[in-house]
Amino acid sequence: MTTAADTGASIAPDSPQIRLEGITLGYGDTLVQKDLSFDIRRGDVFVIMGGSGCGKSTVMRCVTGLLEPWAGRVLLQGESLWEQPPAARSMLMRRNGVMYQSGALWSSMTLEENICLPLEQYTDLAPEQMRAIAEYKLALVGLAGYGDYYPSEISGGMRKRVGVARAMALDPDTLFFDEPSAGLDPISARRLDELILELRDSLGTTMVVITHELDSIFTIADDSVFLDAETKTMLATGNPRELREHSPIAQVRTFLNRGEAGAYGSA
């Protein structure tokens, strides 16, 4: 197989936004996941699913440039993330926005300052231009007028929304969400799912969502990968609705059918 990178040609428009090739990773000498190879298409909502502790966040840390893999390559629009010199890698990393599990807002700054910081670092905008952008991003996530609040003064669900707004500060190509619905009530979780879909539809941003919430998975996912904690590798990739019915792997069907053996198994 030849990829755009191999032939040296410019990136084909239908080349994947993100491609993992034989990624193996872990902490210290503890293996977390091995032999991960999958593509994330541009404009898709891509779900990384699997039980707690199977390594979903770890994979995200690798793709977003925080954790070097033991082996394999991460290609962001054909460019290999971990084979770049640090300065170039940091440029590539900036094309990703990340919403962390806890929101990870900088607690000593107001919401507006949280969103402005990336802008301050990478643009030469005037302060009032930055404030305007921050206000606009807050409005996008339904929090117009909250700019002067501190992270400790808003609820968990709001904090996650601000996390999304901050992740979008530099208009990234890909947005990552680490368990967006964790710790939220069903209604807030639902709203966050809707927000992800709306943002994708209006901005065309590729969305990578880590979650194990089935409702959420079936609502938002175009494509997915299933990571397994026991075999420490991926068991399946594809549209989760199809996997639920037709995956040849019982474990995947069981997971997607809330622990009941799926149709395939009972047939």
């Binding site: 440039g65 440029m91 807002l105 900088w106 670092q121 901050r166």
Partner: peptide, 9 residues
């Protein structure tokens, strides 16, 4: 929060 800083370079 530190991860968030580092992803922003």
């Amino acid at each position: 929060e530190i991860d968030a800083l580092r992803t922003l370079g």
